[in-house]
Each structure stands twice: as C-alpha cells, then as structure tokens.
Design a protein around this nucleic acid. Structure first.
Lengths: 152, 152
DNA sequence: GTAAACTAGTCAACGTGATTGACGAAAAGG
DNA sequence: CCTTTTCGTCAATCACGTTGACTAGTTTAC
C-alpha cells in the first residue's frame, strides 16, 4: 500500500527529469542559456507573437513581470519587439529565428524523450498513464504559468 | 499518437493539483500561511530536527539560504532553534508542535487525495502509474529541492 | 467633435529567496 | 599547542516577482 505523499513526488520527479533532459539537450544543441522559465515563456509567445499584456495573462504574472521576461529574452536573442501598426499602444513580441529554433528542437526532444518512456514501459502503458493523468487533471492542463506558481 | 510535449505538462499538472489541494486543505485546517516551499522545508527538517547546514544540503541550497528559510519558519512558529549542547558551533532546528501538526495533517491529506485518484481510476491503475513513474525516475526521487530547482 | 474612460506599456520602489565571500567561534588532528 | 576544518551568520548582490504611478493611444458617450 503506497503512501499518499509518494505520488506527488513521483509526478514531480517525472516532470523534472523531462525538463532537465530537455535543457541538457538544448544546451548541447546551441542553446545553453535557455532556462526552464524561459522555455515556458517562449512557448507562450508562440509562433504568432503576442503582446506583453497577453503574455502576462498566459504565464499568470503581471504585465510588468512579463515585460521584464521579454527584455531578458530579447537580450538573449530569442524574441524581438515591434510596434503594432494598427494600434499605437501595442507592442508585438515575436520569436526570432533563433527563438523558433528553440521551439522546434524542444518539440523534437520531447518526442524523443517520450519514445524512451515507450521503450521502457511499452506503448500502451505510457498512453494509459497519459489517459489517467488527463482524467485527473482539472481543465486542460495547458497552463503555462508553472514558473510563477511555485513561489506563491 | 500523443505529442511528446504533453506528457511533462500532464505530470506537472498532476503534481500541481496535489500541492494546490494540499494547501487549500491546510489553509482550512488552521495553516493558511504554509507555502509549497515551506512545506518542503518542514518535510526536510523532519521529526528529528536538523542543523541549518544539513537542511541546506537536503534542500539543495546554500547553508545561508537554508538559514533564511529557518528564520521565516521560526517567525511563523513552525520551527525553533536551540543550541546543540554537545557542540557549541551547531544550532538545532526542531519542529514546534505546530510544525509537527502541519506534517501530520499533510500526510493525512495526501492519503486522502490519493484515495480520490483510486476512486476515479481504480486501485491497480494508480499503482501501475506509480510503478511506471518509479521505473522512469532516476535515483529514488526523494529529493526535496523542488523549490530551488525551477529558477536555475 | 471633444471630453471622459478605458487599455497598453513602462518606470520606480520594493519584497522574497537565492547566491558568493568573509568572518568569528568551536571542534578536531597533528 | 597550534593549525585546519566545520558551523553559523553577516553583508552585498542578483534574479524575478509584486504594486502603484504615469504616459500615450484608443474607444465611448454626450
């Protein structure tokens, strides 16, 4: 009979091993300075670009915090800012080619990592695991505000 | 065919729902100011007490950071500091009765939350999930340095 | 058509929780 | 003994979040 506290630790350890291996791989593939929080932010920027305010909403932080994140990502060359031609208040945050490269590589690395789980556990055990989690996780589970969440 | 990026998000969302519900319950049961990071620290202090340096090692942070955490927990009444009678350099950090209460309640709440998973998924599906995660997680997965990890 | 209200982004001040470096006191080892 | 190591803490700094105030641009209402 498993202790209740074990399950959340296992979930976190699994998540963590994914993220750790992702970033080790990214570092080897020319992106040594992407940190987990930056990856989430880049994902939230997405291929279509976003305004700082909307980015803050997606990440669950204030627009000011989102603006600072954009500044850091800009300094690292992953995003760029441009004025919105149709609305003088807005600034568009868009991925640079380097930013797109991170997302593309991340998707490939995640696929490969999942494949490793399939090799060890078998395909149906992995998809049962996914199904079980989908059933237990409220909403869609697509929230990207992981970085801001822990400290609160 | 699931996308690879979905699995880590599901793992995190599962972990997160555990922690969120734990803290909502703790808040109702008289511990409104326990934050996730504090819970990990209290767990690392444990019923036997610990020195600040060892606490830092368990949490994966510097001894100075651990000292500050102890200070915050002390101010909230969850731990107390005492001189080690046998070694003048050491200070013993011990849980107060209130700190023990948090750990006791947390264990009960975790058990109840796991029980909810069993109600929805069935006992063997949950234990298979745990088994799968145990197989994929390197080491023991008992590391408590979750709080410090994300920012790095 | 203009005044008011709202929205978007940024600046400044500050809080929290981490870091490293330096230091004094207490143990341990030759 | 006296040196080396260990332990805890102080101080300065950094990363990253917060709230509040402010400017500029857009929309709404009269």
């Amino acid at each position: 009979m498993a202790e209740g506290y074990e399950l959340p630790l296992l979930l976190f350890a699994g998540f963590r091993s994914f993220i750790d291996e992702l970033h080790a791989e990214l570092a080897e593939q020319g992106h040594p300075d992407v940190r987990p929080a930056y990856g989430f932010a880049l994902q939230a920027v997405g291929r279509d670009g976003v305004t700082p305010g909307e980015l803050g909403r997606r990440l669950g932080v204030s627009k000011q915090a989102a603006g600072k994140t954009v500044e850091r990502l800009e300094r690292l060359g992953y995003v760029e800012r441009a004025d919105d031609p149709g609305d003088g208040r807005r600034k568009l945050v868009r991925l640079t080619p380097r930013g797109v490269d991170v997302l593309t590589r991340s998707a490939m690395i995640f696929d490969r990592l999942r494949e490793r789980w399939v090799e060890t556990l078998g395909a149906e055990r992995v998809s049962d695991l996914e199904g079980a989690l989908r059933a237990m996780v409220p909403g869609n589970g697509w929230r990207l505000d992981a970085a801001s969440w822990f400290g609160s």
